[in-house]
Write a protein that binds this DNA or RNA. Structure first.
Length: 573
RNA sequence: GCGCCUGUGGUGAAGGGGUUAUCACCUGAGGUUUCCAACCUCAUGUCCUGGGUUCAAAUCCCAGCGGGCGCACCA
């Protein structure tokens, strides 16, 4: 092919054909922000739709949609406010930058929570040396806020808020509603697609690390004691997996999902199911199976609460890139929100197989005696009595109330009762298995894997081999010439096609037929429909298959039916 | 955020102080043409932005913005 690298040629095509372009270019552009042009936006819409359909096929998954603006309290509870405000400090001697808390973690227990002025003092007082050049001349430490901050409300009394760094928190907020929707039965899942925001220090690698990006996440809520049973035995395909390097398993292996679960490489059956469904989704989109692998996080890399984390990595022009993160987040998120908000609505009910009968003795205050004696204080007395140690109640003479008052208690004020309690179940915090998809990264790799450079009659030729699921346009309608009525037939046909549900076609009339085929190939249109002289006589058109340029002639009616049903491929057999 | 490299139509490139900035492809209009980037005519430009040096800057200098790579960072 021509000079330069494949990556550059692909990016050129994507710009030229309106797939992916830099944003705000007439104002100089902004790094980390991209536009999907007319072609790219179609591809993105179809990828997201496929993703939604894929997970909703599980039957117990619903879609939700929550705001991107998120009040600070939510993100404090989730840990993002703390985690996203790391202090950075720069060495004046060698100009390297470091996370300040990492420099002092050996001398300070809670190094992450120190504010900037204290941090500078600690670093100077202890003459911390630069890990790179060993000098100890430091610039002032500065917080690096990786979230976009904003305020809710126009003037003062603004509530601090951030643009969400992930869609997940919105789904956790909706747990009570989801729980009702699913008639209080686990497992169930919620999906959400939408924008996420991270103010990256240095966005790099085209659309791989963006400041505003498209995410798609599933939160799958399960009962940790009764995880859903899924038969994985039919999944025999061997997948490239890289287990946790701290584990006893090989560093790399080809193994089926069911075997990996059986051997304990995958640590949770639901994680195995989600890994499989992730794989399935990516393959259906048209990604190259040989360029997909699953890498398990080492225990040090994993967030402290998670027990099994996997990255689904896809190989492309930038090497292996994490495109999906799959984590067993356990009860961590819901637990944090329960603790921070004080709500008790983030729990699910687990009924016991048999009600547990609990026999116990309790102190039963005699309200008819206590009431008249203590009057206004009676409630406090009753509560204090109930809480009192049942083993020592008989020695009780003076009881201290919650307001500090002391009262005298006589034995006629209470009795000890033997009661039988039937407990039919318990409240618990569900565990969450979460796959988080980076849609832009997946689209990038889809384009990368689909992009084929060939030679055609001595010239360079590019084809984007996108399948029906993700192609931007289902077919291109081409009148061979715009005369003798061919243009009119093509216009009519374009209208008829676009009336078909879920089908989008375009017409192209400019330049030679060969050039129009080439343009269609470049943006991945699978079928080219040509209206020629024969069409004028018998209502037939030719269909050209993008991937091998083979043409067949069919009647217009037949074309419409097969286009609608996405069965054009069958006409070739 | 640091270091090195870099920025010229839509895309890819040439031009390194001096007329009207060059080329290929692409795109658009018209012509021609009976199925694979044909041909002819025409059109399409903030030389990234802002300062500075100079009689004169796309060209040299500084800063900003964007891009690439490395370092650092990546819940």
């Amino acid at each position: 092919m021509s000079e330069g690298h494949r990556l550059e040629r692909l990016t050129s095509i994507l710009r030229r054909r309106g797939v992916i372009l830099p944003s705000f270019e007439i104002y100089g552009g902004v790094s980390g922000l991209i536009d999907y042009g007319p072609v790219g936006a179609r591809i993105k819409r179809k990828v997201i739709n496929s993703w939604i359909n894929h997970w909703m096929e599980m039957g117990n998954v619903v879609e939700v949609d929550s705001p991107t603006i998120t009040p600070e309290s939510v993100l404090i509870a989730s840990g993002h406010v703390g985690e996203f405000n790391d202090l950075m400090i720069e060495c004046l001697s060698c100009n390297n930058a470091f996370r300040a808390d990492h420099l002092i973690e050996h001398i300070h227990e809670n190094s992450e929570s120190i504010m900037a002025p204290d941090m500078d003092k600690i670093i100077n007082d202890n003459s911390i040396n630069c890990p790179n050049c060993n000098e100890s001349q430091w610039n002032e430490s500065k917080p690096m806020n990786l979230m976009f901050k904003t305020g809710i409300g126009a003037m003062k009394d603004q509530r601090t808020a951030y643009m969400r760094p992930e869609t997940a928190q919105g789904m956790f907020m909706l747990f009570p509603s989801l729980y009702r929707h699913f008639r209080q039965k686990l497992p169930f899942g919620a999906i959400q697609t939408g924008k996420g925001y991270r103010n990256e220090i240095s966005p790099r690698q085209g659309m791989i690390r963006l400041r505003e990006f498209n995410m798609a996440e599933l939160e799958y809520f399960i009962d940790p004691k009764n995880p859903p049973k899924n038969d994985l035995s039919k999944y025999v395909e061997k997948i490239c997996m890289i287990p946790d390097p701290d584990s006893d398993f090989d560093t790399k292996c080809e193994i089926s999902f069911s075997d990996a679960l059986e051997k304990g490489i995958i640590r949770h059956p639901t994680v195995a199911l989600i890994l499989y469904e992730t794989w399935n989704f990516l393959i259906n989109l048209g990604l190259n199976a040989n360029k997909i692998r699953f890498r398990q996080h080492s225990s040090t890399e994993m967030a402290h609460y998670a027990t099994d984390c996997w990255d689904c990595e896809i190989h492309g022009e930038y090497g292996w890139i994490e495109c999906v993160g799959i984590a067993n987040r356990t009860c961590h998120d819901l637990q944090s929100h329960e603790n921070y908000s004080g709500t008790n609505s983030l729990r699910a009910w687990r009924a016991f197989d048999e009600p547990q009968i609990e026999n116990k003795k309790i102190i039963s205050p005699k309200t008819s005696v206590i009431g008249p004696i203590f009057k206004g204080q009676a409630r406090l007395v009753i509560n204090a009595l109930k809480e009192y140690d049942i083993g020592e109640i008989n020695q009780l003479e003076t009881l201290e109330l919650s307001n500090g008052d002391k009262v005298e208690i006589t034995k006629d004020m209470f009795e000890i009762k033997q009661i039988e309690n039937s407990i039919s179940g318990e409240w618990f915090i569900p565990h969450i298995i979460e796959p988080a998809f980076g849609i832009d990264r997946i689209i990038w790799h889809l384009l990368d894997h689909s992009y084929e450079e060939t030679q055609k009659e001595g010239e360079n030729y590019s084809v984007l081999k996108l399948n029906d699921l993700v192609c931007p346009i289902d077919a291109i309608i081409l009148p061979l010439f715009e005369k003798d009525g061919m243009g009119e037939i093509a216009s009519e046909l374009t209208k008829s096609c676009n009336h078909l549900n879920g089908i989008k076609v375009e017409m192209d009339t400019s330049k030679s037929i060969g050039r129009r085929y080439a343009r269609a190939d470049e943006i991945g249109i699978p079928w080219a429909i040509t209206v020629d002289h024969t069409s004028l006589e018998d209502d037939t058109v030719t269909i050209r298959r993008r991937d091998d340029q083979v043409q067949i002639r069919v009647g217009i009616d037949e074309l419409l039916i097969n286009l609608r049903d996405k069965t054009i491929e069958k006409l070739y057999k």
